[in-house]
Design a protein around this nucleic acid. Sequence first.
RNA 1: GCGCUCUUAGCUCAGUUGGUUAGAGCGUACGCUUCACACGCGUAAGGUCGCAGGUUCGAUCCCUGCAGAGCGCACCA
Length: 728
Amino acid sequence: MPEKFLKPYDPAATESRIYAAWEESGFFNPDECVNKGVTRADAPAYSIALPPPNVTGRLHMGHALMLAVEDIFIRYKRMRGFRTIWMPGTDHAAIATQSVVEKQIKKEEGKSRHDLGREELLKRIEAFAAESHATIVYQLKAMGASLDWSREAFTLDETRSRAVRAVFKRMYDAGLIYRGNRIVNWDPKGQTTISDDEIVYEERAAKLYTFRYSKDFPISIATTRPETKVGDVAVAVHPDDSRYEKFVGKEYDAIFCDVPIHIKIVADKEVDPDFGTGAVGLTPAHSHTDWDIADRHGLSHEVIVINEYARMAVTGRLADKKTVEAREAVVKWLGDEGLLEKEEDITQNVATAERTGGIIEPLPKLQWWVEVNKEIPGRGKTLKELMIEPVRSGAIKIIPDYFEKTYFHWIENLRDWCISRQIWYGHRIPVWYRGEEITVGVEPAEDGWIQDEDTLDTWFSSGLWTFSTLGWPDDTDDYKNYHPTDLLETGYDILFFWVARMILMTEFALGDIPFKTVYLHGLVRDAGGRKMSKSLGNNLDPLIMSEKFGADSARMALVVGSTPGTDMRISEDKIKGYKHFANKLWNIARFVLASASEQKNGDRTWASAPERAHFSAYECERLDKLDELTKEITTDIDEFRIYLAAEKIYHYVWHEFADKIIEESKSTLSGNDASARVSRARLLLLILDRVLRLLHPFMPFVTEEIYQSMPTKDTEFLMVAKWPSSAE
RNA sequence: GCGCUCUUAGCUCAGUUGGUUAGAGCGUACGCUUCACACGCGUAAGGUCGCAGGUUCGAUCCCUGCAGAGCGCACCA
């Protein structure tokens, strides 16, 4: 027995050494596995694209969970003989990354992005991204992730950029990408548009003001944003509202807070007669619903009263005031003029930008859009339909399945996707202008063309991830071998952001699914059930956890009993518990290996699997039970119940193998019957060997370290050893 | 408004197509330096499976209603 077993298991001293050895072996790469004969060249493929972490800093516990789950499937499939590939990469994360760096520069140097200029800012962001990237790669390795580093990708690198340009061009040519002047979600803080999904609604206290535009205006209206009323072009009422019937169609002029306005009364069924006065002042340029109503009645969108800095773009007393100040000024004016009728406290959902926290200011802007309700030429279907079909048909299976309903519900409400952003970090929109001419896809060779200033929504490039990582649009072997991918594993919180976009993009570009199964894990919360966040200071750093207790322990703590789609709680104590388990296994190995070497008697073949006939009835029964467990665990993993599989193997190791089988074997092992002693030692060795294999996907390091000392060792590494089957 | 989920031991959660005494981890109490392991071993306490009906020979599991908690989407003038 090697001396290392005389001391307690020390993950810190073991894990980095083991990972380096795995990396050195080349077995993370399926091609190498085939070359070295551990995988058959004609074996079926199994692929996962790692959800690329944002290059905004460090990995958190949610990432650790993601890595644990994916590595379990990858290691399991690899052991089962599949040509297994797990593609690593990172995401440039456009707005997220740029806003982190901008904040940093503002804080340290007091400069804005415009002080630096496009080129300099990009340099700074790239330096930051490179630093984050190095940290992230280090963390991925520390968690034991068996990623194929030879295939690492970045959403903004050359190959991925070509994929982006190719898909953009195809969508443009198909008429699905258009440039349109429409109302957008403008983030005044980030100085960019954002998509509907990047909005977070926050509940806030607000005041609802009831007033008239002027003394002789016949209808009172209610609003929480009086400052926008200088941009009103109409008042809408419900068509069946008898109170206002007689005014519909009439037009009025007024001077509202120094601004001349012209108001038409229209009837529209969108209006709720029971809210406020039942009459709505329409501000088409600064409200999504007003914009739509204005469309239906041929009203102007042109009256813009708020600018990109959330200041008033009018003359008079409101000129250049911030919207909040303007609101006070308007309310004061209304009071002075005797027009204010009521002031009520209400709670309101305020739209804020997910990344910057800025309050969204709806504005009309010329932007690029993906049209989701238009029939695709030659396909006879819309993008929406392309998103629904593979999930409805079962070609893509979502786990847990109830998220399919959420998915469909979201798609039903989906509107056109605004894909242009007024930031600098990201894929520049592949469109060039020269006067009235437009070129899309590739930069024209002649002089005089100017590229669009904007960049693409980061989800446009991550939507291509399953195939852009495989070298598409080139006709690569990887693409042919590994697409569609088998599993997409991610948190349910980005089902819409990412999973839906991947289905959209892949169905459009390839006419195929991006993945067969979507496994959605829950959110990782602290011991008190709170979301982990910097401001609360309740973050558990996965790197610190794995240094303290071992990556194996962190992985087990994250996986055992955590069902897909359900949030989980994690604490240091829980992780510590599995460190104890790793040590328990270590001591089991110590005992078994010591017994084995005592009984060995110079027979070199004794450790190989012997016939059942050589075992006692008791021993055969133990082997039968182990076969049963093997079968159960195999089925559980195949059916995505890894939380159960992990718990079962844990329970078996501690409470069956250690507590019962080893305890019950002690008298035999120290008894006088030599052949019984040998038989029992072999049994223990066989069980340990089996347990190491079954546990390896979950706790790769400690199992590999023990395996290296096993007389039953039949491959260079446990990571490419054969998964046990009960049929043997 | 539309939709989804959850409610099981003090805490956190499992419970694999309804079937004999409902499980785990942590925690608690008591006892063990027993020659693999104190990162351990042994023993014990602890649940009318949210409530009310229904289906069934039989329900924690299926159906309906109610109550409480959480979440998504839309709206919020």
